[in-house]
Design a protein around this nucleic acid. Structure first.
Length: 245
DNA sequence: AGCGCCTACCGCCAGC
DNA sequence: AGGCTGGCGGTAGGCG
């Protein structure tokens, strides 16, 4: 059973016929999953009681408030608790779907599917419109070691020449191969990895924004602010305030 | 808010 | 031929 979310989902969560239907189906389904705010329907049906779950980050607080029995985790892209899977925003549904494919058919099939998605989900701008995590999974064979190294050195200078050096290629070849494998240019990928690291720190700790910026490799607080607006369309302060309960 | 400098990106091309 | 590599230079865009 796969439950989608979207406009009007909270009204739908109060429709007894629908919720009853969800509860019936969920009890017989091998596996239950929700995308985005679809978690509200599962929660209303009691499917999430006592389980770990997630939803779109803007709605985590509201879901927690309406359904105290659900253990909300705002950070992950998706959460798996036994047979029940929930995912964050709409694009996280793609990551969820791939995880389901992987569970059923194995890692290599999931990676093959992901490769097709990279081809077909590219927009004219050339940016892949799904999570960095997914893009990195696809590139794991080729750049897994590099990504491990990058994540351990986010506060270092990570210029094209340094990355190329680390990968043992010329700058030109590295650029080409990296973009081909991940759907992102090297600099863009670094930016997104830094934003992801900073985002985690913003929501998990009370560290001052300026120190977070530095430890994630942004030259300044202002630079981090610009990156956040580009990648997430929110300022760091706004982002943090969503998570301060 | 704006500007000058710097770098990443990418098309092009020669060489292997 | 046909593919891959890597240096060069113009340009757009980001950083400080």
């Amino acid at each position: 059973l796969l439950v989608a979310g979207g406009e009007g989902v909270e009204a739908a969560a109060e429709d007894p016929v629908l919720i009853d239907w969800v509860r019936q189906r969920a009890s017989r389904a091998r596996r239950v999953a929700s995308v985005c705010t679809g978690a509200f329907l599962l929660a209303a049906a009691g499917v999430l009681d006592g389980r770990r779950a997630t939803t779109h980050w803007m709605y985590c607080a509201r879901l927690a408030q309406s359904f105290p029995a659900v253990r909300i985790e705002p950070d992950p892209i998706f959460v798996c608790d036994g047979p029940v899977w929930t995912s964050a925003g709409v694009t996280a549904g793609i990551d969820l779907a791939l995880a389901l494919v992987e569970e059923d058919l194995g890692r290599s099939v999931a990676l093959a599917v992901a490769r097709y998605l990279v081809v077909f989900l590219k927009r004219p701008g050339g940016q892949a419109q799904f999570s960095t995590t997914l893009a990195l999974q696809v590139a794991e064979d080729k750049f897994g070691a590099l990504h491990d190294w990058i994540n351990g050195h986010l506060d270092n200078e990570l210029s094209l020449s340094i990355l190329a050096d680390q990968a043992g290629m010329s700058e030109r070849s590295f650029s080409r191969h990296y973009a081909e494998a991940t759907g992102q240019t090297p600099a863009r990928a670094i930016e997104r990895l830094r934003v992801e690291a900073a985002r985690r720190m913003l929501s998990e700790r009370r560290t001052p924004v300026k120190r977070i910026a530095r430890s994630c490799g942004f030259g300044s607080e202002e630079t981090m602010r610009r990156s956040f607006l580009r990648v997430l369309a929110v300022t760091p302060q706004d982002y943090r305030s969503r998570f301060t309960f």
